[in-house]
Computed example of a mutant assay.
Amino acid sequence: MSFLRDAYECEPVIAHHNDPERFRGLLSVAAVDRKVAEQDLREGMLAMADANRSVDSSDFVADSGAIDRVAVARLYRRGATIILNQVHQSDIALADFCRSVERVFSCHVQTNIYLTPPGSQGFQTHYDNHDVFVLQIEGEKTWRLYDRPVEAPYRGERFESGRHAVGEPRHTFVLKAGDCAYVPRGLMHDASASGDAASLHITCGLLVRTWADLVLEAVSEVCVNDPAFRRGLPPGFAHRDFDRTAARDRFRALISELSSRAQMDGALDLLTEQFIQSREPAVLGAIESASRPLARQYRARPAPWRLIDEEGGLRLIIPGGEMTFSRAPRPVIERALSGQAFAPEDLVHDQAEELIRRLTTTGLIERLD
Rank of each mutant, 00 (worst) to 15 (best):
L254R: 11
S256R: 14
E257K: 15
E257V: 03
L258R: 02
R261H: 12
Q263W: 04
Q263V: 09
D265F: 09
G266N: 08
G266D: 09
A267D: 06
A267W: 01
A267G: 06
L268N: 02
D269I: 05
D269S: 13
L270A: 15
L270D: 10
L271A: 10
E273A: 14
E273Q: 15
Q274E: 14
Q274S: 14
Q274V: 14
Q274L: 15
F275K: 08
F275Q: 10
F275S: 11
F275C: 09
F275M: 11
I276S: 10
Q277D: 01
S278Q: 11
S278L: 02
R279Q: 15
E280F: 00
P281T: 06
P281M: 05
L284D: 08
L284W: 08
A286Y: 08
A286K: 07
A286C: 06
I287K: 13
I287F: 12
I287Q: 13
I287H: 10
I287D: 13
A290P: 09
S291Y: 15
R292S: 13
P293D: 09
P293M: 11
P293Q: 09
L294V: 06
L294T: 01
A295I: 01
R296A: 12
R296C: 07
Q297D: 05
Q297T: 10
R299Y: 04
A300E: 01
A300L: 04
A300N: 04
A300M: 05
A300R: 07
R301F: 06
R301E: 03
R301W: 04
A303E: 06
A303Q: 13
A303P: 00
A303G: 01
A303H: 01
P304A: 07
P304D: 02
P304N: 01
W305H: 04
W305P: 00
L307R: 08
L307K: 05
D309K: 12
D309T: 11
E310W: 02
E310Q: 13
E310A: 09
E310D: 04
E311Y: 05
E311A: 13
E311L: 10
G312M: 05
G313F: 04
R315C: 11
R315H: 07
R315I: 11
L316C: 10
L316G: 07
L316R: 07
L316A: 07
I318Q: 02
I318K: 05
P319F: 03
P319C: 00
P319I: 05
P319E: 01
G320L: 01
G321M: 09
E322W: 12
E322P: 07
T324V: 15
T324I: 11
F325V: 13
S326I: 03
A328G: 00
R330L: 02
R330A: 12
R330G: 01
P331D: 09
E334D: 10
E334G: 03
R335P: 04
A336Y: 02
L337P: 06
S338D: 05
S338G: 13
Q340E: 13
A341Y: 03
A341I: 03
F342G: 01
F342D: 02
F342T: 02
P344H: 02
E345I: 02
D346H: 07
D346E: 05
V348R: 15
H349E: 14
H349D: 15
Q351V: 03
A352F: 10
E353H: 05
E353N: 05
E354S: 13
E354F: 08
E354M: 13
